[in-house]
């Protein structure tokens, strides 16, 4: 994917992002890391078009993220699955496909089955989010993001509320998705996942991009900020 972020700032009571610039080409799995409050969630939400920058521009594959059409093709996975709690896992998907993508109930059902199967949820489809584990709910949320057939999937700390075993379960499921030819932008605290999965890493601190480059920068930090971050997460 092609990412072009120009002079982006975001102010929300205090300044969350300060004049962020980055232009990337050809990478397919971009990991954003940093401590809590470093502005990484804000950045990924703005890249997905969920929040608007206070100033500056973001273009993904040549399209301005403020374009209302852009959002319709974005897959987004939230921190806490964020499934609609009154609907079954399957209905969470079919409702979207039927109402916002004009699919017939049969087509929607077929598509939902397909993606729930990919995420190994074939026997949990008819359960409501509260009746499945956090990892299963988060996988259903990934299936929901996939179901609208996006080119890029954004994952905003998808495992931050899960224990280590469920974290592995969800991240393994994400790694399997690479076979589908999707592209990813993700925020995570799990460094092993960044090293395995990302082909580009952006490290943020206090609303700025401090370092960015191939995942190997994690083993050889050039700045004090990244060095101290890496010593804390390890």
């Amino acid at each position: 994917m092609k990412i072009n972020i120009q002079n982006v700032s975001h102010t929300y009571d205090v300044e969350v992002l300060e004049n962020v610039n980055i232009a990337l080409d050809q990478y397919t799995a971009i990991g954003i890391i940093g401590v809590s409050g470093s502005g990484k969630s804000t950045l990924i939400r703005m890249m997905a078009g969920l929040e608007e920058p206070t100033s500056g521009n973001i273009e993904i594959d040549g399209i301005d993220v403020r374009d209302p059409e852009y959002r319709k093709h974005v897959g987004f996975v939230f921190q806490n699955h964020n499934l609609f709690p009154h609907l079954t896992l399957k209905r969470n998907i079919t409702l979207i496909l039927e109402k916002t993508r004009n699919m017939s109930p049969e087509e929607a059902s077929e598509a939902a089955d397909k993606y729930l199967d990919i995420l190994h949820l074939h026997d949990q489809k008819e359960k409501k989010p509260a009746k499945v584990s956090g990892g299963q709910a988060q996988r259903a949320s990934i299936a929901r993001a996939l179901s609208i057939n996006p080119e890029i999937i954004f994952l905003d700390e998808p495992t931050s509320s899960l224990d280590p075993i469920l974290t592995d379960e969800v991240l393994n499921a994400v790694e399997e998705l690479r076979e589908l030819g999707k592209q990813f932008v993700f925020v995570t605290h799990v460094m092993s996942f960044v090293k395995d999965f990302a082909d580009y890493v952006i490290f943020m601190d206090k609303g700025k991009i401090i370092e960015h480059g191939k995942p190997s920068i994690l083993d050889n930090p050039q700045t004090n900020e990244l060095e101290s971050f890496m010593s804390k997460v390890r």
């Binding site: 959002r71 939230f78 921190q79 964020n82 609609f84 009154h86 409702l95 979207i96 916002t100």
Partner: peptide, 25 residues
């Protein structure tokens, strides 16, 4: 708040938001 964000993201109309997601809950 996040549910509203998800509704926006998937492109539900105001009517659909109330009819299928907000009111049932």
């Amino acid at each position: 708040e996040e549910q509203y964000m998800a509704m926006d993201l998937f492109g539900f109309t105001s009517y659909q938001k109330y009819r299928y997601i907000i009111l049932p809950q």
